[in-house]
């Protein structure tokens, strides 16, 4: 679905993207993560033919971009940075103009497709109100509807739940999961890790213009070989565990062990009460923070 090789973009002396090799398979839900200024948006713009690469190749749906953009991009739905619309027109007029502006949007089915997309994002009852009177959340929904009008095979979305309230976020998440289950490939660029954790199976992490990590979420969050346990008797447990103890904060202990069951039996056998015991997994946040250096919006740190 998406394949980039040695993708580089330089703006004058500034290197925004320094060689990214992305692989997104059909049916994937891919989370594209990275700190601000790491090159995420520039990469997304190169996928859509907005920014022309300095070096390297981009392939979307099997066709080179930007050379054959016209043949494939109409099968891609996109939300880049923030939604945009003509403020003096209503939702339907906006979608109709955008749909008529390129190939692949049949005039005959346009009305029905627009109604369906508005329905999907929860704007069916929006009426003829001009977009300039919309709230941020409504604009975001309209932007998503614009990405959905041609029932795309691939959705490239940049912060799709930006500006939505918790219920809206949940609605859109459910929509995206349903679309993905029905075969739409999702490519989600975000720095909201919780969102990516709930929506994506694979993640790629960029830092300073390089892809520093690309793996399945399950693999990244595999057990670390330690156990986290909570006990009301931490002092006692610490004395008993000795060398196995990796970390302690209050009543929460991290213990290195290859056999959690035996550890549990041993502690309980000594009369130590255990309230919680689970294999330690790294959160996506820890994975990303480990893989990346610092936000590019803190210039003094580089």
């Amino acid at each position: 679905m998406i394949r980039t090789r040695g993708l580089v973009k330089r703006y004058g002396g500034v290197t925004a993207v320094a060689g990214i090799d992305l692989d997104v398979e059909s049916g994937d839900s891919y989370g594209f993560l990275g700190p601000n200024g790491s090159g995420k948006t520039t990469t997304v713009r190169m996928l859509l033919g907005l920014v022309l690469p300095t070096a390297g190749t981009v392939e979307v749906l099997g066709a080179p971009i930007p050379k054959r953009a016209r043949q494939v991009l109409h099968r891609v739905g996109a939300l880049v940075e923030s939604p945009a619309a003509y403020g003096h027109l209503g939702a339907r007029a906006n979608l109709s103009l955008l749909d008529a502006a390129g190939p692949g949007g049949s005039r005959r089915t346009r009305r029905a497709r627009i109604d369906e997309a508005l329905e999907q994002v929860g704007l069916a009852e929006v009426g003829r109100r001009p977009v300039r009177a919309y709230s941020l959340g409504m604009r975001q929904r309209l932007g998503l509807a614009a990405a959905l009008i041609r029932r795309p095979e691939l959705l490239i979305l940049d912060e799709p739940t930006n500006g939505l309230d918790p219920r809206g976020i949940q609605e859109i998440r459910a929509l995206l999961l349903a679309l993905n289950a029905a075969g739409t490939t999702l490519f989600l660029s975000s720095h909201l890790l919780a969102e990516v954790e709930q929506l994506c199976r694979r993640v790629g992490v960029v830092d300073r213009g390089r892809l520093v990590l690309q793996d399945t979420l399950a693999a990244l969050r595999a057990p670390t070989g330690a156990v986290v346990l909570r006990t009301p008797d931490p002092e006692w447990a610490v004395g008993l565990l000795d060398g196995e103890l990796a970390e302690r904060s209050g009543d929460r202990l991290v213990v290195r062990t290859d056999d959690p069951a035996a550890l549990n039996a041993r502690l309980v056998g000594q009369g130590i009460r255990i309230t919680e015991l689970a294999a330690q997994r790294r959160t996506l946040e820890e994975v990303v923070l480990d893989a990346t250096t610092t936000s590019a919006d803190r210039p003094e740190a580089s």
Partner: peptide, 18 residues
């Protein structure tokens, strides 16, 4: 300025056609 240019190009409207 309105941000609609990126959506037109990504649509893709084609730069010359646009």
């Amino acid at each position: 300025q309105a941000g609609t240019l990126r959506y037109l190009i990504a649509r893709p409207a084609g730069r010359t056609r646009l």
